[in-house]
Design a protein around this nucleic acid. Structure first.
Length: 254
DNA sequence: ATGGTCGATAGTCGA
C-alpha cells in the first residue's frame, strides 16, 4: 500500500498537478492539506475519473483537508475529538486496515504570537485525541503538514532558524511527545541524502537556493514498522510551473 | 539583501 501526503496550497489552483501526479504515482491514499475550498465547491469531478474516492473537510479560503483513496475508507472522522475548532485541519479514516490521520497542524506564525498559542493548544488536544485512538487502533499512520521540523538536520540553516517558529523547542517537544506514544518518523527509518526537504518558501527564491525544511511528515505506529519498506520525498512537483510550496512525501507498506 | 510570493478573494489575510 502506497500512502502519500501533499500540502497543495489550493486544490483548485493545483488541479493539473494533483491529477497528473496521481496518474503517475498511483498511491492508494493521498492526503491533501490546504485545499482552501468549501465542500460543495470541491473539484470532485477531476479525481473520480482517475479512480479516486474523495473524503473532505473543507472551509472557505483557509485550511481544508481531504483524503483521495482508491477504495472507500471506513470510519471517517473530522476534527480533533474534544477540541472545539472552527478551522478544518484533520480528517481520518480506515484504509486497508490502517487508521490514516491526515493533519494540517497550525503554522503558528511566530513564537509567542496568538497563533503560536493556538498551535500549542491544538497540539495538546491532538495528543490527547491520539491517546484515545491508540486504545482502539494498532495500525495508525499520521501524515500531513506538521509545521514542525523534527531536528536541525531537517532545516537548511539551523542557526538562522534556532528557536524560530517551526523549529522551537516547544514545538519539537510536542512532536517528540507524540512519537513517545509509539510512533516513528518513517523518513528516518531509512538512509537518506543530506538536504532533503518537503517545503520551500515562495519568497526569496528559496527553492532555487535550496533553502527548505522537512515539515511534511509520515508517522507510523510501532505496529507498522516491519511493514514499512520505503519512505521518501518526491521533489518533482516542486520544480514544475506554478507549484505548491510543498512537495509530496510518501511511504510504502508491504 | 531584514525583503520577497503565492492562493482565495475582492480588501486583506495567512502562509
Amino acid at each position: 500500500m502506497k500512502i502519500a501526503s501533499w500540502n497543495v496550497n489550493g486544490v483548485r489552483a493545483r488541479l493539473d498537478h494533483v491529477s497528473g501526479w496521481l496518474e503517475t504515482n498511483q498511491p492508494d491514499v493521498l492526503a491533501l492539506q490546504e485545499t482552501k475550498v468549501m465542500d460543495e465547491m470541491f473539484p470532485f469531478d477531476a479525481f473520480k475519473p482517475l479512480g479516486y474516492q474523495v473524503s473532505i473537510y473543507g472551509q472557505k479560503s483557509y485550511n481544508g483537508v481531504a483524503l483521495l483513496t482508491k477504495k472507500i475508507p471506513t470510519e471517517i472522522t473530522k476534527g480533533v475529538e474534544g477540541f472545539s475548532d472552527d478551522q478544518t485541519r484533520v480528517i481520518a479514516g480506515v484504509c486497508g486496515g490502517v487508521l490514516v490521520i491526515n493533519v494540517y497542524v497550525p503554522n503558528g506564525q511566530s513564537v509567542g504570537s496568538e497563533k503560536f498559542d493556538y498551535k500549542m493548544s491544538w497540539l495538546k488536544h491532538f495528543y490527547a485525541y491520539l491517546q484515545t485512538l491508540l486504545k482502539v487502533h494498532q495500525k495508525i499512520v499520521i501524515l500531513g503538514d506538521f509545521n514542525i521540523a523534527p531536528a536541525d538536520v531537517d532545516v537548511h540553516d539551523p542557526e538562522l532558524w534556532k528557536n524560530k517558529v517551526l523549529c522551537s523547542d516547544n514545538e519539537r517537544r510536542w512532536l517528540n511527545q507524540i512519537l513517545d506514544l509509539g510512533f516513528i518518523d518513517s523518513f528516518r527509518l531509512f538512509e537518506q541524502e543530506e538536504g532533503l526537504y518537503s517545503w520551500w518558501d515562495y519568497r526569496a527564491a528559496a527553492y532555487r537556493r535550496k533553502m527548505g525544511m522537512r515539515i511534511d511528515l509520515i508517522l507510523i505506529s510501532d505496529a507498522l514498522k516491519k511493514e514499512c519498506i520505503k519512505s521518501y520525498i518526491d521533489e518533482v512537483p516542486r520544480g514544475q510551473d506554478r507549484p505548491s510550496d510543498h512537495t509530496p512525501v510518501l511511504i510504502e507498506l508491504s
